[in-house]
Amino acid sequence: MAQGQKRGPGFYLLAAFFTLFVIFLYGPMLMIFILSFQGTTGGLTLPMRGVSVHWFGDLLTSTRYGDLGGGLTRSILLGLLALVLTTVISLFAGLAFRRRFVGAGPLFYLSIISLVVPGILLGLGISQMFQLLGLRLSWLTSGLVAHLTWTLPFGLLIMFAVLNRFDTSWEEAARDAGARAWATLRLVTIPILFPGLIAVALFGFTLSYDEMPRTLLTVGGKNTLPIEISNMTMTVTTPALYAIGTLTSALSFAVIAISFISIAVIQKRRERRAED
């Protein structure tokens, strides 16, 4: 809009506002990160009484903090399952939604409901349904299902956006060259959609990994990591709380970084192959 014009005072005002927002967004997290390296005698707030990794060690060795290792394992497993199922189911559903079929409208609205109904209510519904059916609640059954009610609608919406830029004549060209449905999917559709599918996978994993409201009532006897952490917030009054925050955020950032890097690498590779 302002191409070629000098930046006015409006720009600097808005830039300052944006900067403040970014500080607002990241400042507290940075604080947690710093405080997690609090000295052995340090408390929940500044000042730092020395710098140590004591609280990380405490977290790993002490049993006071609940079943953090188990929670982490379960959360990662659930995240991976959600990743795979969300990617596969959203891919095919997205492909289906390109055409008209009976029930497309109601299914779309039910998916949106799944997104906007307060998570804990859906969790309550699922847990009650399981109990009425005489099924036991467990993180791997009712828990996984509850996670998917959160990740699938997101996956579907992302697939809509990704498929918006997908030209159906690519698939027709593949069929025209003699490819059957499976070959078309494997050799044309999936490779072209791949960066978008990574985005779906990223959402699938991280949304599941951080999920809490839906999990709370459906997880059964063994908790996921966010529930373990939220229990800690009620009971733990040492910087170990921040240490777990630093660790789990680092894991989230690692997943995000890996996803972005792999998307970038795929695109780079396509470009590089083009340059040779």
Binding site: S169, R180, V188, I192, F194
Partner: peptide, 22 residues
């Protein structure tokens, strides 16, 4: 008969070249 098995080849209006293949 199945597309691609009837002895025809179609050249698409927008060419529909596969963007990920050389």
């Amino acid at each position: 008969a199945r597309t691609g098995s009837r002895g025809t080849a179609l050249m698409f209006q927008n060419y529909a070249l596969f963007p990920h293949l050389t």
